[in-house]
């Protein structure tokens, strides 16, 4: 375990070294995030001048949800995109060969080797928005923060598992560059509480593409309105999807090593 943490630290430092070469990018991204946050908050404010609640959510709760959305998106952009988008390339160019010969889980290297450090400011901003939202709701307590943290971990686990599984299909289809587009499109729906959508869309976003677990559930944890049933479901779904993605990965590797040239 300590070995894995050490390697992750080295990878992160390397990403930092590479990204620091592009100073301007850092500022542009921070500005970009601020702009997105500003415009989204504006939309929320405009909507809430017309109605007191959307799908049962108040302005402060929706603001917290926006923060959760930004945080999950930030984690995706910083940690998932730069790694998972490279998997098809590893397969196509045979770069996986070297990874498989290291006495360490290849999945770990594939998932952690790169990080887009430029986007780290977004994580800070997102966290600030969540805390402000919680403070305005009066739910800024250790208990709520703890549950929120747990739900965020489950959300990231779910997101990672689904995306990783989709990327793993590159072993068979080789070109799966559209997977991330597809996912981003669905994930955009997470900016609003799932209860704001009509019934069938809500079902789709909960059971088919688990967007509800990514943003709505953690935001409910922050608002103190999450039921224990949903909290357990969130953890269970994350664990199940992680296990399934691991099974798929092992199957793909067995296939790769018996077929590739």
């Amino acid at each position: 375990m300590r070995r894995y943490l050490r390697i992750w630290r080295i990878f992160f430092t390397h990403s930092l070294i590479q990204d620091l070469e592009y100073r301007l990018n850092w500022w542009l991204n921070a500005f970009n995030t601020l702009l997105f946050l500003g415009s989204s908050a504006l939309v929320l404010w405009v909507v809430f001048t017309q109605a007191d609640a959307i799908g049962g959510w108040t302005f402060d709760q929706a603001l917290t949800l926006l923060g959760v959305y930004l945080l999950i998106e930030g984690v995706t952009v910083v940690f998932l995109v730069p790694n998972l988008n490279r998997v098809p390339q590893y397969v196509r160019k045979g770069e996986l060969d070297y990874l498989l010969l290291k006495p360490i889980a290849a999945r770990f290297i594939v998932s952690t080797r790169y990080a887009s450090v430029w986007w780290v400011p977004q994580l800070g901003l997102a966290l600030a928005v969540i805390l402000v939202g919680m403070a305005r709701q009066g739910t800024l307590t250790a208990g709520h923060l703890g549950l929120l943290a747990l739900m965020l971990v489950a959300a990231i686990g779910t997101l990672y598992a689904v995306w990783f599984a989709l990327t793993t299909t590159a072993f068979w289809f080789v070109k799966v560059d559209n997977v991330s587009e597809l996912f981003t499109a669905f994930f955009a729906a997470g900016r609003f509480p799932v209860s704001a959508y009509p019934g069938w869309v809500r079902a789709l976003l909960t059971f088919v593409v688990p967007v509800a677990f990514l943003t709505t559930v953690p935001a409910e944890a922050a608002a103190g309105t999450l039921t224990w049933g949903w909290a357990l479901a969130a953890v269970g779904v994350a664990a199940l999807l992680l296990a399934l993605s691991q099974a798929l990965w092992r199957y793909a590797l067995a296939n790769y090593t018996s077929a590739s040239s």
Binding site: R3, I10, I17, Q18, K102, I104
Partner: peptide
């Protein structure tokens, strides 16, 4: 094929191997 990272110095990639092989 190559295992060294293109954008890094070789010694940086060596550090990864040092950690992997303990």
């Amino acid at each position: 094929k190559q295992q060294l990272s293109w954008d890094l110095a070789a010694v940086d990639s060596f550090l990864v191997n040092q950690a992997v092989y303990e």
